[in-house]
């Protein structure tokens, strides 16, 4: 079964870039451009990984993580932040909030793919292609 990855970002261009890269690697990609929809879709579609931007208009990344961790059916889905906030205190805060990974922008396609693979390895599932 293909791994489903949900990407949440308010920038359409970044969404399409990530879709391009990850679909090229054989993952199923769900793109969402705001926080509210992300929570609803996550409950509904149960993705295997969520890549989440922090700075979004409306509900931001921190709130999305909080809601996901509160909800029974989504609390075990790994979440990785995808953001340009590169400071150490943001990283520490992210880990405290329950995000398992932190990918800083700008990223190269290779790095994104490697990071995603690494997360799947760590959380137990093997990435089918």
């Amino acid at each position: 079964m293909r791994k489903k990855i949900m990407v949440v970002d308010d920038e359409e261009d970044i969404l399409s870039l990530i879709r391009e890269i990850l679909e090229g690697e054989g993952y199923g990609v769900i793109c969402v451009n705001n926080g509210e929809e992300a929570v609803i879709k996550a409950v509904e579609l149960q993705p295997d990984l969520i890549l989440l931007d922090i700075m979004m208009p409306g509900m931001d990344g921190w709130e999305v993580v909080k809601l996901l961790k509160e909800h029974e059916s989504t609390k075990d889905i790994p979440v990785a932040f995808l953001t340009c906030k590169g400071e150490l205190r943001d990283k520490i805060m992210a880990l405290q909030e329950g995000a398992c990974h932190y990918i800083t922008k700008p990223f190269t396609p290779q790095r994104l793919v490697e990071e995603v693979k690494m997360i799947f390895e760590r959380t137990g599932g093997e990435g089918d292609k």
């Binding site: 920038e11 261009d13 970044i14 870039l17 990530i18 391009e20 890269i21 090229g24 700075m55 340009c84 922008k105 700008p106 990223f107 190269t108 396609p109 290779q110």
Partner: peptide, 18 residues
């Protein structure tokens, strides 16, 4: 400003590299 600068950069660079 840095956020605004980084976001388009990420998209542009990402595509070029890809």
């Amino acid at each position: 400003v840095s956020h605004e600068l980084k976001t388009p950069l990420t998209a542009a660079k990402g595509y070029v590299e890809y």
